[in-house]
């Protein structure tokens, strides 16, 4: 549709305004993380440090931060692998099975994704306590897999429903058993859906705070979000280090997201728009 030049200028201006609204806090986070500890804050604020330096990053990357980082990688990485595997198996059953009871179970899956974590966390905490799993990676992995499964199944089921069944049927006629059909035909075809789901699980678990805060009690087991929250009190107003830590916590997910964005956006919006 053709637009008048004046309309276009207004629209471009609005677009720039939108970008500024989003970017100013992020830009400032980066700016303060590069500010030398000696350079004071001033009013009006200086938007970019006079002499940018990485020293805050060096100081912030202390041993305990490295421990948190490692814990986050272990917990998130395991959750991604386990959730996506279990969800693919379940989604296949939901997408290909025709039993009425499966429709009912799928409704329960959709329902479960809306459960408030804060309302179910105490019984889960008691389960973990009774199983002697509190303050372990395993307790967080089990919790994360459970809470991410519903959406993961929903995303993958939507994806599998769009795949043609004819390939699976042809393989079955050629004499491939159902297990082989699944691993040789379905799994390779499902790759874009698997990537989208993996990105979702990573984004959710990398930032998960409530379970990590409740289930871990020692520094050795803290994940990054909880560790970062602890820093607030510990470092008072040493915002340079706090912002440097924040940037380091955010970079991995931001990088993954931007490399795999198109899979994720397609996977998320397809389901959400089609219902």
């Amino acid at each position: 549709m053709k637009q008048a030049a004046s309309t276009r200028i207004v629209l471009v201006a609005l677009q720039i305004l939108l970008a500024i609204f989003v970017l100013i806090p992020l830009f400032w986070m980066l700016s303060v993380s590069l500010k030398p500890p000696t350079e004071p804050f001033s009013i009006p604020a200086r938007l970019w440090p006079q002499e940018p330096t990485m020293s805050n990053y060096v100081t912030a990357f202390r041993p305990e931060f490295r421990t948190y980082f490692l814990n986050s990688i272990i917990v998130s990485g395991s959750s991604v692998v386990i959730t996506v595997s279990l969800a693919l198996l379940a989604a296949y059953s939901f997408a290909r099975g025709t039993l009425l009871v499966l429709t009912g179970l799928m409704s329960l899956v959709v329902l479960a994704q809306m459960f408030p974590h804060s309302a179910i966390i105490i019984p889960i905490y008691k389960l973990m306590r009774d199983a002697d799993l509190l303050n372990t990676h395993l307790s967080l992995i089990i919790a994360y897999v459970s809470v991410t499964l519903p959406v993961a199944i929903w995303m993958l089921r939507g994806f599998l429903l769009k795949l043609p069944v004819s390939l699976e049927e042809a393989a079955a006629i050629d004499g491939a058993g159902p297990v082989r059909v699944f691993f040789d035909i379905v799994v390779p075809l499902a790759r874009p859906g698997v990537i989208a789901t993996a990105v979702y699980v990573l984004i959710v678990t990398w930032q998960e705070f409530l379970f990590a805060l409740s289930f871990t009690s020692t520094k050795e087991m803290r994940t990054l979000p909880v560790g970062l929250n602890d820093f607030i009190g510990q470092y008072g107003i040493r915002y340079g280090e706090l912002m440097a830590s924040s940037v380091m916590v955010s970079l991995p997910v931001i990088a993954v997201f931007f490399f795999l964005q198109r899979y994720f956006v397609a996977g998320l919006t397809a389901g959400a728009v089609k219902g």
Partner: peptide, 26 residues
């Protein structure tokens, strides 16, 4: 059809124990 239930079993078990039971537990 047995395969459907094998594929679903871990998910149903986990969701039952970690999502639906805690609702009742609360």
């Amino acid at each position: 059809r047995w395969l459907l239930w094998v594929f679903l079993a871990p998910t149903l078990l986990l969701m039952g124990l970690m999502l639906f039971y805690p609702m009742v537990g609360t």
